[in-house]
Amino acid sequence: MATLIGWIVRAVVFGSVVMYGAMGEILTEKAGHLNLGTPGIMCTGGAFGFAAAYAYENAVDNPNFLVCILVAVGTAFLAGALAGLIYCFLTATLLVNQNVVGLTLTIFGVGVGKFFGTYVIPEGAVSTKAVFANKVFIAKIPGLSGLGIVGELLFSYGFMIYLAIVLAIVVHLFLSRTRVGLNLRAVGENPATADAAGINVTKYKYCAIMIGSGITGLGGVLYVLDYGNGTWATASGDAIEALAWLSVALVIFVRWNTLRAIWGSYLFGLCYWAYNYVPTLIGVNVSTELAQMLPYIVTIVILILGCTHMKQENQGPAYLGQSYFREDR
């Protein structure tokens, strides 16, 4: 039983990192932009969020709980949004090919994250830990988390796990119920139509991509300060990158719906961590590498099933990946 609970808890934390990335990517894709820079953005967010939290707790004698959250989360969001701004300027204003810019941004973002992260690590060491920030990020809900199995399964997580769920619901309601959300979807579906309807396509793209990238950045800080035990190591950048690609896969898996991303991301987490828990649970040894492929395999199967019988609403934005220029002939 303890193994099962341990598996689920691990999967939820892991999944939440992926969920942030996926939500960011969904917002971006709804504006018609395929951002393959997600790993880079998440890595930048994680590195700067960690660095800010680390600097804060080392600078003051009595670090404050709330200030720590604001500093870490705020910096991660900002760093992500700025990385998104680079992407947006290149693709939405200069109309450079989105795939090329995205992939380049991944390389660039991971590099930037590792470069600045290294500055924080003391000379001679391979990693360093933000002890207080880690405590803040994994603080369980007092009282409720002590309620036996229910408490462990539902209330034993840091605040960012719940924030992810709230955000998923908010983003979903925003996209499906509000006029602004409707306009944003129109931009991704058919920018010429949106333009003709008087929607400022460029403004919508910048807002959606920058906010989306900021949310992706939050995934990075969650990774470092909670999932990664508050430790930034020289290899953290690569680890975030590997995980962030799952976010891009999750977007397709949940068919651009952030509500589905909640359980989808946890399922990814379960698949990813199966190698560590399933052998104990059923007493059979599974190869780690094979087991960790599961989320990708699930995505591919969904794609195959989906491409034949998918309702039009469940498909990606029609104009995804294409540049829009009003006077194009």
Partner: peptide, 23 residues
């Protein structure tokens, strides 16, 4: 203007297309 190639979003309803971009 009603363009030769309709400027409508396929996955939206008629009403959603009508209010698109309105404040």
């Amino acid at each position: 203007m009603v363009h030769q190639h309709f400027k409508l979003v396929d996955v939206f309803t008629a009403a959603e297309n009508v209010v698109l971009g309105l404040k």
